[in-house]
Every structure is written in structure tokens, then in C-alpha cells.
Nucleic acid binder design. Structure first.
Length: 265
DNA sequence: ATGGCCCGTAGAACGGGA
């Protein structure tokens, strides 16, 4: 079973990229963030024509998350949850559903804008509430994957220029402590379960030739629960879509789980 | 040295992103 996550920075603009990527990488479940689409405009029909069913939670202009899954797997999106029941929030940043025996969550963590700002405070509170909710979720569904744009570079190895980013938003100690709190729930950063090429990131600024110079951050993650950690076979970041014309500034990340696929085949 | 891009909502710039 393959599960991926991708911040597409407008699904309206990026739909051709998503369709093309899914054709080349037919993952079982894809978590999307920053769809920036109201539900009435979600391209469910186009995705269905490409073989993917979808559930989604959007709003005008900002945020918006979705889960896509292969129609030919025969799954329904069970126990659909939109938002964090423990954190009332106008912003559409969370969606969860169970596919087969794996619960999948697509999360768009707030950016935080700048350390000390109101948005930063909201980010920390949002992350505290996320941890509280995930504790419940893991207890109810031990086989769980949280894919998303976490807007946190967990360690300096995830930052192209750690000195320049030190204590800045996305890299500050309180944010990294929140990421650590998620790991304390038994979650594991699937990417770091394997030896990886150095200086691999998942986001590059559109400005200053950020991608060409590989001035990036690794802020998109797939966290797997303890019950699933032993099933993880691979995890990688695909830079290819970032090279296409009019790309998202984020790259997709994919995790492969072992025995579950055979069990559902 | 500063800001340098992209998206949505606009229907011109501006907020937001990271």
C-alpha cells in the first residue's frame, strides 16, 4: 500500500500535475493540502475519470485538504472526520478517513508567518490540539498515517541553510518541540527510517531560483504509527513535479507499506 | 541593500504563503 502527501498550492491550477503524477505514480491514497477550492468546485469528476475517488474539505481562497484513493481498491472512506473535534477552527486543515485497515489523515499545519506573531501563536495551539486529537485517533485506530504539510523542518538536516533559518518560523524550537510531541505519540517520520540522499527537501521558494539552487526545507512529512512502523518498506520525495512548468512549490512524498497490500488484494 | 515568486480575489493591488 502506497500513501503520498502533496501540498499542491491550488488544485485548480495543479490538477493536470496531480493527474499526471498519479498516472505515473498510482499510489493507493494521496493526501492533498492547499486545494484552495470550495467544495462545489472540487474536481471530483475529473479525478474519478482518472480512477480516483475523493473526499475533501475546502473554503474560498485559503487552505483546503482532501484525500484521494484508488477506486479499483474497492474501499469506501470510512469514519470520515473533517477538522479536529477538539479544536473548533474555521480554517479547513484536517480530513481523516479509514481505507481498508489503515486510517489516513491529511493535515495542513498553519504556516505561522513569523515567530511571535498571532499566526505563530495559532500554529502552536493548533499543533497542541492536533497532538491531543491524534492521541485519541491512534487509540481508536492503531494503524494510522498522518500525511501533510507540517510547516516544520524537524532538524537542521532538513534545512538548506540552518544558520540563516535558526529560530525562524518553520525551524524554531517551540515548533520542533511540537513535532517531537507528535513523535512521542509513537509516530515515526517515515522518511528518516531510511538512509536518504543529503540535502533533500520537499519545498523550495519560488523566488531567487530556490529550486535550481536547492535552497529548500523538508516540511512535508508522513508520520506512521507504531503499529505500522514495521510495515514501512520505503519513503521518498519526488522532485520531478517541481521541475515542470508552473509547479507547486512543494514536492510529493510517498511511503510504501508492506503486507497490507497483499492482505487487501 | 532590498526584494526578487505564485495564487486567489480581484478587475488594482494586496494578503498569504514559507
Amino acid at each position: 500500500m502506497k500513501i503520498a502527501t502533496w501540498n499542491v498550492n491550488s488544485l485548480k491550477v495543479r490538477l493536470p500535475h496531480v493527474l499526471g503524477w498519479l498516472e505515473a505514480n498510482p499510489v493507493d491514497v494521496l493526501c492533498l493540502q492547499e486545494t484552495k477550492l470550495v467544495d462545489e468546485k472540487f474536481p471530483a469528476a475529473e479525478l474519478a475519470a482518472a480512477g480516483y475517488r475523493s473526499v475533501f474539505s475546502g473554503q474560498p481562497t485559503y487552505n483546503g485538504v482532501a484525500l484521494l484513493w484508488r477506486a479499483d481498491r474497492g474501499w469506501d472512506a470510512r469514519d470520515l472526520t473533517v477538522g479536529n473535534p477538539r479544536f473548533p477552527d474555521e480554517q479547513k486543515r484536517l480530513i481523516a478517513a479509514t481505507f481498508g485497515d489503515v486510517r489516513v489523515i491529511s493535515a495542513y499545519v498553519p504556516n505561522g508567518q513569523a515567530v511571535g506573531s498571532d499566526k505563530y501563536d495559532y500554529k502552536l495551539r493548533w499543533l497542541d490540539a492536533l497532538a491531543a486529537w491524534l492521541s485519541d485517533e491512534i487509540a481508536a485506530a492503531p494503524r494510522l498515517v498522518v500525511g501533510g504539510d507540517y510547516n516544520i523542518a524537524p532538524a537542521d538536516a532538513d534545512v538548506h541553510d540552518p544558520a540563516a533559518w535558526a529560530d525562524q518560523v518553520l525551524c524554531s524550537v517551540p515548533e520542533r518541540e511540537r513535532f517531537g510531541a507528535l513523535l512521542s505519540l509513537g509516530l515515526t517520520d517515515a522518511y528518516r527510517m531510511f538512509e536518504q540522499p543529503p540535502k533533500t527537501y520537499s519545498w523550495w521558494d519560488y523566488r531567487q531560483l530556490g529550486f535550481q539552487k536547492n535552497r529548500g526545507l523538508r516540511i512535508d512529512h508522513l508520520l506512521v504509527s507504531a503499529a505500522l512502523a514495521g510495515s514501512v518498506r520505503a519513503c521518498s520525495i519526488d522532485r520531478a513535479p517541481r521541475k515542470l512548468p508552473q509547479p507547486s512549490d512543494h514536492a510529493p512524498v510517498t511511503v510504501e507499506l508492506g503486507p497490507a497490500e497483499a492482505a487487501t488484494a
